[in-house]
Design a protein around this nucleic acid. Structure first.
Length: 122
DNA sequence: CATCTGACCTAGT
DNA sequence: AACTAGGCCAGAT
C-alpha cells in the first residue's frame, strides 16, 4: 500500500467489465478508455487474459472487439464456450460474431443504450 | 539482455 | 473512402 499506489490497470478493467450487465457487451477500446488509457486496448486483452481465477469472476466473454467479433473466444475453454455463455446471457452470436452488436453494446458512461453516433453513419 | 508478440484501437495520410 | 503506421504495457522466448 504505498501511498499513490493507484488501482492497478487490470483492477480497473475488471471493475468495468464486471459492471457490464448480462446480455450486454463492451469493446476493448471503450473499456480501455474507461480504464483511463484510451489507446491501450491491447493491455485490456492482456489483463483479461489474467482474469482467469480472479474473484469475483470477470465476464470476459462480454468483451468483444470493435466489430463485435469474439476475438478472445479462442482463449475460452470448452467448445464454443464464449458463444454458449453469451447465448445464455441473451446475446445472440453468429459465426463468432455478435448480432445486434450496437443494440447490446453497453455504455457505462451512459448506463444504457445511449447509442452515440460517430462510428457509424451508414 | 534484447526482441517480439499479444483478447486492439485511434489517428493521420 | 481506404490504407498505413503508430501506440500502449507486460509477458514470454
Amino acid at each position: 500500500m504505498a501511498a499513490g499506489a493507484q488501482v492497478g490497470f487490470a483492477e480497473t478493467v475488471f471493475a468495468v467489465v464486471r459492471g457490464i450487465p448480462a446480455g450486454r457487451v463492451a469493446t476493448y477500446g471503450d473499456v480501455a478508455r474507461w480504464a483511463g488509457s484510451p489507446g491501450a486496448a491491447r493491455r485490456v486483452g492482456w489483463a483479461l487474459n489474467r482474469s482467469g481465477g480472479v474473484e469475483p469472476p470477470v465476464p470476459a466473454h462480454r468483451v468483444v472487439n470493435r466489430w463485435g467479433g469474439l476475438t478472445g473466444a479462442v482463449h475460452f475453454p470448452g467448445p464454443g464456450g464464449m458463444e454458449a455463455v453469451l447465448a445464455a446471457e441473451g446475446v445472440e452470436t453468429e459465426g463468432g460474431r455478435v448480432l445486434h452488436f450496437a443494440a447490446v453494446r453497453f455504455d457505462p458512461a451512459s448506463d444504457i443504450c445511449t447509442q452515440r453516433q460517430g462510428t457509424k453513419t451508414t
